[in-house]
Design a protein around this nucleic acid. Structure first.
Lengths: 280, 280
DNA sequence: CGGCGTGTTGACTACCCTCAACTCGAGTGG
DNA sequence: CCACTCGAGTTGAGGGTAGTCAACACGCCG
């Protein structure tokens, strides 16, 4: 065990107090091989590793905060199961959703630079989170070079994910954003061994909207439109993908019922115009 | 020198061939202390370091590419002087500007994960770039733990920067985005020892627009509006900030000349409405 | 039961995009 | 020297996308 305060991390069922002030019961430990597997680090040489090096799990219930903005940084977190969101709070108290971590994702990395977390992580469901003290994290990389590269790779993957988000927010229509969001969720569920075609959203329309730079109404309307066209089925949070390829390449909603509405509106405007002309 | 192919990195004025296919002349080398200073790594213990460990500089002229998307990853880059942009190219060939690296910034980190660069870096002016082979980078961290933390910190800083961008793109008005962009440029120029009040933009309206998720026309109009209100002065690429605090906190443009136009439009609409009613 | 959070849908509006014309300056070549 | 092109930038007119405001339905829980 590399932890300085290793003693406090042993013992089944002990109480763990987090900075968020809640008490939870720790239940499981993972070894290095399990953690690497979880992080999708492929070439992990199964050479002898320290059997005493174990990583603590902590359970969170929906609504609980894993860390908050400004809290001193010392841990990185890896999702073993469950769903979360990470959010930024702006000067007016508005939430901006940054990501929806799920199984295999690491979060908390934005705290490294300033030694304070730059965002807040909240459980959207019951979660099992592996906590990795940053010092252990770096010590690992020092001992096993190929692991170090993999750890940089995890951060790099996160950078790419955010670049993709920036690109989406900067250039895609609301429909395309929602479509890609569904596809991306589908792929992540499929990776986790669940169905990529039928799944339940774990987040509200509000949270999806914040994540995609849209209002909750626009998200709701877009899902309804996809439903009418037959691209998906929606019923509250239950989603069924009917045509993933169409969603994958969608840029603008094809003319449809919505089009009819617009035409009607145009007709009305034309009518008004006629009336104006008539009046003059 | 830690490089395997170290020999090719010695000799003043030798020719260096980059993957982009251009030939340039290397001129300078930096030691570790200089590089750390450039990266704003504060607590660099000046304990004995390898005097043979030097980092190669390469010069680029405006328009030249430092790396392209998909190119095999092996180097990280640090800007010693000059201005660049990094861009993503989408499936239709459209550019999405991701960042404007300048003195002290590192780029290329998005290549670590897939061992291929995920974006393209282009010089906007003459540039002096320090090239750090990724292997040297990781080897450094292994030898000097406090340096390793700093290196993770550099990546963490980049993560935070992109989170901030996502938040901006998701929630701010066009005016607020442009205002914050100017403030952020101002602060970076001030950090570099230049004037934070008067500076020249190194990028086109198009590039600013892409970066901010706006069209070039909106950027141009917004700058003109700021100019009319007296927040800034603009003449082509020359910018003068007159009221930085107003720019920093701006959320929506205050009523002005533009407001007058809107009122006029409203009046016209009301007039039309009257006509419609009269007609009916 | 009533309150609350979530989600849907409608009507209206405003912000920003699109398309277009024009200016300006740099570079080129007759 | 001037005409020409080309890219960058400015400005205007008009329209569409998505935001705002509002009403309503539904499920959950005290």
């Amino acid at each position: 065990m590399i932890l300085e305060n290793g003693a406090t991390h042993f013992g089944l069922g002990m109480q763990v107090k987090t900075e968020a002030g809640r008490q939870r019961t720790g239940k499981l430990w993972s070894n290095l091989a399990e953690v690497c597997d979880l992080l999708r680090i492929p070439a992990y040489s199964s050479t002898a590793y320290d059997p005493d090096l174990v990583f603590q799990h902590v359970q969170f219930k929906a609504g609980q905060r894993i860390h908050t903005i400004g809290q001193p940084f010392d841990m990185l977190y890896i999702v073993n199961s469950g769903f979360l969101k990470t959010v930024l709070i702006d000067e007016l108290g508005n939430e901006q959703v940054l990501s929806f971590p799920m199984k295999g994702d690491m979060f908390g990395m934005d705290g490294i630079h300033a030694r304070k977390y730059g965002s807040e992580a909240v459980a959207l469901s019951s979660c099992d989170i592996i906590m990795v003290p940053f010092k252990v994290f770096t010590a690992l990389g020092r001992k096993q070079p190929e692991l170090e590269v993999a750890l940089y790779g995890v951060m790099s993957r996160e950078l790419i994910r955010e670049q993709t988000m920036v690109s989406m927010l900067g250039s895609l229509s609301a429909e395309a954003r929602v479509a890609r969001f569904l596809v991306s969720l589908s792929e992540r569920f499929a990776d986790m061994g669940y169905s990529g075609k039928e799944f339940n959203l774990r987040m509200t329309r509000q949270e999806i909207g914040s994540y995609l730079g849209l209002t909750l109404e626009t998200v709701s309307r877009t899902l309804s439109a996809f439903n009418e066209i037959g691209l998906i089925s929606v019923e509250q949070r239950a989603i069924g993908l009917k045509d993933i390829n169409a969603l994958r390449t969608l840029r603008r909603l094809p003319p449809s019922r919505a089009r009819a509405k617009q035409d009607a509106a145009k007709a009305k405007k034309a009518e008004s115009a006629d009336l104006e002309i008539a009046a003059v």
